[in-house]
């Protein structure tokens, strides 16, 4: 009787952990050394930190490698240059950027160009001035709301 119970328990264990193992066999928990040569080439800026990435982060990065061949040389160069910073952002920052990128894309071309121009102007400001601008923004959520 006890044996049957235990057997059932084991079965349950297998059932529940099944997806995780299957996932390993798919791609999500792939170690750096297990990536294909093409994937490694695209993701090379991440070689050192790859094995520390969370499963879903790896998934997203592999998606980048998948879409990479569809892009032109200029875009590819930008991807390479930005991958590192991208992987070090918090999940929230990344989601925030994704959302705003979608909004950006929904703008008419001339507005997009206007924003790009503004960004270039902003980039040309001295760092001290940019820092000043960053501090000027009002807090939307004041500390009281959190700590009372």
């Amino acid at each position: 009787m006890a044996a049957t119970k235990r057997a059932l328990g084991l079965l349950l264990l297998v059932l529940l952990s099944g997806p995780a193992w299957a996932e390993d066999s798919k791609s999500v928990m792939l170690k750096w050394s297990q990536l294909t040569e093409d994937q490694r080439k695209v993701l090379s800026p991440l070689s050192k930190e790859w094995d520390t990435l969370r499963p879903w982060q790896r998934e997203k990065m592999l998606d980048i490698a998948r879409d990479y061949p569809k892009m032109n040389a200029k875009q590819q160069a930008r991807v390479q240059q930005r991958l590192n910073d991208w992987s070090r952002m918090t999940p929230f920052e990344r989601e925030n950027a994704r959302k705003k990128y979608q909004q950006f894309q929904s703008l008419p071309p001339e507005k997009q160009e206007e924003l790009r121009k503004k960004w270039r102007e902003y980039q040309s400001l001295p760092e001290a001035q940019r820092e000043g601008l960053r501090r000027e923004q009002p807090d939307l959520y004041d500390a009281n709301e959190l700590d009372n």
Binding site: D63, K70, K74, A97, R134
Partner: peptide, 17 residues
């Protein structure tokens, strides 16, 4: 895809700064 976000002219920081 994130690839297209990263490949676009405006960098991700622009959205967060």
């Amino acid at each position: 895809g994130d690839a297209f976000l990263l490949g676009s002219e405006l960098p991700p920081e622009a959205y967060l700064d």
